[in-house]
C-alpha cells in the first residue's frame, strides 16, 4: 500500500508540473473567467445558459487534461527508464499501475477542483441565495464529471499498456465521444419495443462494452436538455458505482496485460 501511495504522490508531483497540462488548464480557466462577460444572451435564460456553458468548458478541459495526462504516463516511464529503478525495488507491476492511475486521478481532482472553484465563485457573486446548500448544488455536476474523468483515465491507462500514446489519444478520445454521444442512442435502441431482436442484441452488446460516459452529463441543459431524473441521489450513487465497477474491470485487464509485457 505504501508503494502505491508513494508512486501516486510522485505522479501528482510530476503532473502538476507538466507544462502542457498547465497550459490547457490555464486556457480552461481563462474561458471560465470571460464566459460571464459574453453578454450576448437574453437576460431571462442567462443564468441557465451561462451555467451550462461553464460546465461545458470544465468538462471539455478536464477531458483533454485527462487524456493528455494519462496516455503518456506509462510510455514515458518506460522511455525514460524511471520504471526500471522502481520495478527493481520491492514493487509489483500491479502496484505500479494502480499507483500511476491513482496519481492521475488525484491530479485530475486537483485541477478540476480549481476550475469548479472558479465556477462557484462566479455564480456565488451574482446569486441571490448564497447559502452552503446552493454551493453544494453547484458542485454536483462537476463531481459527476470527476467520476466521468476517472473512468476516462482508466480507459486511457488500459490502452496505454499496449498501444502507443498517439494511437491511444485517438482511441480514448474516440471512446469518450462514442460513449458520450452514442451510448444514449444505443440505449434507446435496446429498450425500444419495436427494435429488431438482432439490432437489439447488438445494441445491448455495444451498450455493455462501451463505457457509458453519457451517464455523467447530468445537469447540463445544453448537452442533455431532456434528461429527467426522478431520484437524484440514487441516480448519482448508481452511476458512481457503475463508474467504479467499470474502472475496476479496466484496471484489472490493464494489469493482466502489463504484467506479461516487456518494459
Amino acid at each position: 500500500m505504501r508503494q502505491i501511495l508513494s508512486i501516486a504522490t510522485t505522479t501528482v508531483g510530476e503532473a502538476i508540473r507538466r507544462r502542457v497540462l498547465l497550459i490547457i488548464l490555464l486556457i480552461g480557466v481563462l474561458f471560465l473567467v470571460v464566459a460571464p462577460g459574453l453578454g450576448v444572451l437574453s437576460a431571462r435564460s442567462e443564468t441557465v445558459v451561462l451555467r451550462g456553458m461553464m460546465l461545458g468548458i470544465i468538462q471539455l478541459t478536464s477531458a483533454v487534461i485527462a487524456i493528455v495526462l494519462t496516455v503518456y504516463m506509462i510510455p514515458n516511464e518506460i522511455e525514460r527508464r524511471t520504471i526500471y529503478t522502481i520495478l527493481s525495488k520491492p514493487v509489483q507491476r500491479w502496484q505500479f499501475l494502480i499507483g500511476k492511475y491513482l496519481g492521475a486521478v488525484f491530479s485530475l481532482g486537483l485541477m478540476m477542483a480549481l476550475m469548479t472553484a472558479v465556477l462557484v465563485f462566479v455564480f456565488w457573486l451574482q446569486a441571490s441565495d448564497q447559502s452552503l446548500a446552493a454551493v453544494g448544488a453547484m458542485v454536483k455536476a462537476p463531481t459527476m464529471y470527476f467520476v466521468q474523468m476517472s473512468l476516462l483515465a482508466a480507459v486511457a491507462i488500459f490502452f496505454s499498456t499496449f498501444v502507443a500514446p498517439l494511437v491511444n489519444f485517438f482511441l480514448t478520445g474516440g471512446m469518450y465521444l462514442l460513449g458520450s454521444l452514442f451510448n444514449p442512442f444505443f440505449q434507446t435502441l435496446q429498450e425500444n419495443q419495436g427494435t429488431h431482436p438482432v439490432t437489439k442484441a447488438f445494441a445491448g452488446i455495444v451498450n455493455t462494452i462501451l463505457p457509458n460516459f453519457a451517464n455523467y452529463n447530468v445537469q447540463n441543459p445544453i448537452i442533455n436538455p431532456t434528461q429527467v431524473i426522478q431520484n437524484e441521489s440514487r441516480y448519482y450513487l448508481e452511476v458512481t458505482f457503475y463508474g467504479l465497477f467499470y474502472i475496476g474491470i479496466l484496471l484489472v485487464a490493464g494489469i493482466l496485460i502489463f504484467d506479461r509485457r516487456e518494459v
Binding site: 510522485t10 508531483g13 510530476e14 508540473r17 525514460r80 527508464r81 524511471t82 526500471y84 529503478t85
Partner: peptide, 8 residues
C-alpha cells in the same frame, strides 16, 4: 543512462 524525476 538513468533518469530520475527531475522535479525532485
Amino acid at each position: 543512462r538513468p533518469y530520475y524525476y527531475e522535479h525532485m
